[in-house]
Design a protein around this nucleic acid. Structure first.
Lengths: 144, 144
DNA sequence: TTCAATGCAAATATTTTGCAATTCG
DNA sequence: CGAATTGCAAAATATTTGCATTGAA
């Protein structure tokens, strides 16, 4: 997962966006996080490396990263504006409700199931969201 | 799905809440909707039947209905504050991205799958969300 | 009669927009 | 240099809270 920074920076440039210090700082944070992060959290962490960063820029950078499918917006009970690095082709997430850690998981066999639902309901299925919530091994440990 | 009003009203009372005209108006709307509704939409519709309704009361009533598991919060790309009547035991939703219509669907065999994910990742799974998005039969029809 | 509930107005919180100054390429 | 980007301040949204009044039980 580490070292995505360079790849992301290249992708931004290839898509006609400029590479600025502000963007680099935001990317450093979100590309390598092992926890779900809210914009304000990205801001606070990135600000340490690049103090004149503005929150607005964080919002705008996240917007572009999402547009390029480099990050994924995570919906949770309490808030729906948190992000994790995206994994190509997979949007099945497992989240720790205590610490925000995340894991991606595979679900190939689900496609057939979804198709079947579509047939039964008369809907043409275009997208799906699947998320599991639980307590990660580390947090379970701490709670003994 | 129709005629849930009375049941909901009883449940509110059984749980120590008072039955007011404002609450009845809100319940009439959300208990019988066939579309996902945002608080402001509930407000606007319910206001027709009970003009002195305040938006704040809609928020507060929805909060109580959610607490009693009578309605379910629906998360979508654009907003995460929309509700549908809940179906006991099932939180698997299929949503029309055009008109907001919804269908519940069953997924018994998923439990084993979820358990397996938990075992592989070391997480103890506590909850899951599954939603499908698509175009319903009516909207597909209209779009010919 | 009593206390929960209401609804207004005000306070918060969050996200977006306008714009002059800055910086990348 | 020229255009994209920044970040401030202000605006727009969405949701919550305080409080005097109303109304259900």
């Amino acid at each position: 997962m580490a070292g995505q920074n360079q790849k992301w920076q290249n992708l931004l440039r290839e898509n006609g966006y400029r590479l600025t210090d502000a963007r680099r700082a935001v990317i450093d944070v979100i590309a390598n996080t092992d926890r779900v992060l809210k914009p304000i959290e990205v801001y606070e962490i990135a600000k340490e490396a690049y103090p004149r960063l503005g929150l607005v820029t964080v919002y705008r950078t996240l917007e572009k990263l999402e547009e390029l499918d480099l990050i994924l917006r995570v919906h949770q009970e309490a808030d729906c504006q948190a992000f994790v690095p995206a994994w190509e082709g997979h949007k099945h997430l497992l989240l720790c409700t205590r610490c925000g850690r995340y894991e991606y998981f595979e679900g190939e066999n689900l496609e057939a199931f979804f198709k079947d639902i579509g047939r039964k309901t008369g809907y043409s299925i275009e997208d799906h969201w699947m998320q599991l919530f639980g307590t990660c091994a580390v947090c379970s440990q701490e709670n003994l």
